[in-house]
Design a protein around this nucleic acid. Structure first.
Lengths: 253, 253
DNA sequence: CGTGTGATTGAGATGGGTCAACCTCAGTGG
DNA sequence: CCACTGAGGTTGACCCATCTCAATCACACG
């Protein structure tokens, strides 16, 4: 996939040193001159359109990707064709670790909207982590954060109440946006209700009802994909303990 | 925690080179003399008893652990005290990655029975991965396998039918035992029903009923923790597609 | 032989899946 | 400018799988 879009490349050829995601990304904590070396091996890909894929299931692992702009999902597909969303990936987050074990991807990675990624070819990574002292540790840290998000996901799916899962999901997203320097209380969901459902192990109707109920109870305001968190403390409380603050929707307005 | 059990240490001081788990563990794929260097930094801990912990939530990350004999579970605890099993760890599998991101553990790791671990101090690991060329890649592979198991777990929890989850769980365990050179069709479950339930996001009664039903349908034979898989193909089919082969337990024997 | 812990089984309640209708809105073309 | 269309989202009614509560069983251990 070598694209000859010269001026596009030029526009994207902003170095790691100038990237707003630097603190979240591999170059964090390495020296100025080392960053130049890293810069040389990182390929910045042209923009991806909605539903374009970084890799498919079974494809050999060629690189690690870092979401730069836009959001991605990784999807596993079972034998009977059921799709399951394994993860959502916001800017600064790693994509492609699913193939580390076997060398073959076991998920598809798909852009949820217009997006940009940085791509670190695997062989080059191997070299440079040896050449640049701090990078190995930083790589492990970034991998560790990814493992942490998987674990958050596990904790969400371990909850048996749909409402809890939805609250935890929104709370987690809010935190992630906050870390990116966005508002923690107002953002737009990059994924469809369907994606959310398949991420949470629920059906779409349950997600929809969950949203409306959280809205009725005053925690949030949703309109389509636009979300405002009205009661961050309450939502957080709901996400952390399994005790539902408004146990029954007893019909009383 | 320096124990002065000299002869115990001596007994355990078998080198990586002689370890039956070598193929699954860090030393896989590195040279003979490099293995000696690794050998020097790997601490082999004295036996752990059932319910002894490797680390607690909030503890700073000090090492990576590899289960050597016996099995472990990692458990997350929510604010209201609910325990959730994040992972089971069989011999050759990594424990402790949960702290990679932040440097603090977010799980407890507990031995499910008498067990042995190898412990790789974090600072020493840092050094040696630079000194030993192949080790960095091997470390990533082992981490990758751990990520893969987390993903298996996510796929299990994404299923909405309890029966599917249980079948997938047993199928996965069977595969893991097989890789260890044990029988894939007959082994004993190292964890309680309670642990299984908390791993699967179910309640203990549902797990119990699920087992009996799988038995009634001829897939397995369970007696306490002793398990025999009678129909590996059928179980596997059930684990991979979401179509239940015996949809209804219609009361007909 | 009692005691306790873990596992199984039963009966009843309920949360969320299923199915179906309807709404919303952006895009398209007349 | 409006009608049509289709995809995504919401809502309602019903029903079943799983949770809850409770009794009983199995078995190891003192």
């Amino acid at each position: 996939m070598t694209h000859s879009v010269v001026f596009d490349l030029a526009r994207l050829r902003r170095s790691c040193a100038q990237c707003s995601l630097q603190q979240l990304c591999l170059p964090a904590g390495i020296g100025q001159d080392d960053m130049v070396r890293l810069d040389e091996i990182v390929r910045r890909r042209r923009p991806l359109a909605r539903s374009e894929r970084l890799f498919r299931i079974g494809a050999p692992m060629e690189a690690l990707y870092v979401a730069r702009e836009g959001a991605f999902k990784t999807v596993a597909i079972s034998d009977d064709g059921e799709e399951q969303v394994i993860g959502f990936h916001l800017p600064g987050e790693l994509i492609g670790l699913d193939a580390l074990g076997s060398g073959k991807h076991r998920c598809e990675a798909e852009a949820l909207g217009p997006a940009l990624v940085c791509e670190v070819p695997l062989d080059a990574l191997e070299e440079i982590t040896h050449a640049v002292p701090g990078l190995q540790l930083q790589l492990l840290r970034v991998i560790g954060r990814s493992v942490g998000r998987d674990q958050d996901h596990l904790e969400i799916l371990g909850r048996r109440q749909a409402q809890d899962r939805i609250a935890m999901f929104l709370h987690g997203l809010s935190e992630r946006y906050h870390q990116l320097g966005h508002s923690a209380t107002e953002f737009s969901l990059p994924m469809s209700r369907e994606d959310i459902a398949r991420y949470l192990g629920l059906v779409i109707e349950t997600v929809s009802r969950g949203f409306t109920r959280l809205q009725d109870e005053g925690y949030i305001k949703v309109r389509g994909r636009q979300l405002r968190i009205l009661d961050p403390v309450g939502l957080s409380a709901m996400a952390h303990s399994s005790i539902d603050l408004h146990p029954a929707a007893s019909g009383i307005a």
